[in-house]
Simulated assay, not measured.
Amino acid sequence: MTTYAALLRGINVGGSRKVPMAELRTLMEGLGHGSVRSHLQSGQAVFTADHGDEESLAAELTAAIQKHFGFSVDVIVRDHAYLAAIADACPFPAAELEGKQLHVTYFSQPVDADRFAAIDQAAFLPEEFRLGDRALYLYAPNGLGRSKLAEQFAKPRVNKGLIATTRNWNTVVKLVEMTAAE
């Protein structure tokens, strides 16, 4: 039995694409997943599964959400080992920063530096980013909502063909804790 986190992109924002967490938990239990728990209202659920891999579990949940709620939601599924490795590999001094200053964008597949070559990092200082394993770390000292660098990641040349979803550092740490073996 493996413990995973499902990261749903763009739900419960601005009153649209509402996915109540209680309904999501029930839906996931109906798919045969165990120990289903959610975190916040912004699209994180932790569960156990004894079948499938990250991609097939994400596809299964995406299809179930479409059928149940009537709209499509991009989903990324990652296991505890991956989530812990991402937290451990953070290139920024996470312990010294507020959770709103540090973010991780999880990608559906590996990305290389070429996708980001057109971004002049020096032009956005003190904001910075670094690439990780299917992830991007963003230091935004004034928060994500005010980040000019974060706006660059939404451009088609950067995210074409990818599912990408961002979580603040507090959520990154919480998901590692929630997916740890009990």
Rank of each mutant, 00 (worst) to 15 (best):
D112S: 12
E60D: 05
L131I: 08
F47G: 00
S42Q: 04
K174I: 08
V173A: 03
D112Y: 05
A180N: 09
K100E: 12
G43V: 02
G10L: 03
F92A: 05
A6H: 00
Q121C: 08
E55W: 12
I65H: 00
A95F: 05
F92S: 01
I65G: 03
D133H: 15
Q109T: 13
L31D: 07
E54L: 03
G10M: 03
R167W: 09
V104M: 03
K100G: 04
L149H: 08
T2G: 06
A164W: 05
R17I: 05
Y106M: 08
P126M: 11
A6G: 06
W169E: 02
A49G: 13
S147P: 04
L57T: 00
V104G: 00
L149M: 08
L7H: 04
Q66C: 07
L125H: 11
A113I: 15
V75H: 01
G145W: 07
T171H: 02
A87I: 02
A85V: 06
A85I: 03
I76Y: 01
A123G: 08
E60M: 07
L162K: 10
A84P: 02
P141C: 13
L162E: 07
A64H: 04
I163T: 15
K174C: 05
L40A: 07
K67R: 13
I119F: 09
A113C: 08
S56I: 11
Q66N: 08
K18F: 08
Y4C: 10
P93V: 06
V77E: 01
F124P: 02
L24H: 02
A22M: 11
A135I: 04
L27A: 12
A123K: 09
E23V: 09
G161L: 06
S72N: 07
I119G: 03
I65Q: 01
Y139W: 15
D112G: 14
R134Q: 14
L24D: 02
S38C: 14
L97C: 04
N170G: 06
D120L: 13
E177M: 12
A58N: 03
T165H: 15
V36W: 03
P126K: 11
Q66Y: 06
P110K: 14
A59P: 04
K67T: 15
A58I: 05
Q44I: 10
A154F: 12
A6P: 01
T48F: 05
G34V: 06
Y106N: 03
M21I: 08
L27Y: 13
A164N: 15
D133Q: 06
G30W: 10
A154D: 08
P110V: 10
S35G: 13
G70H: 06
A113Q: 14
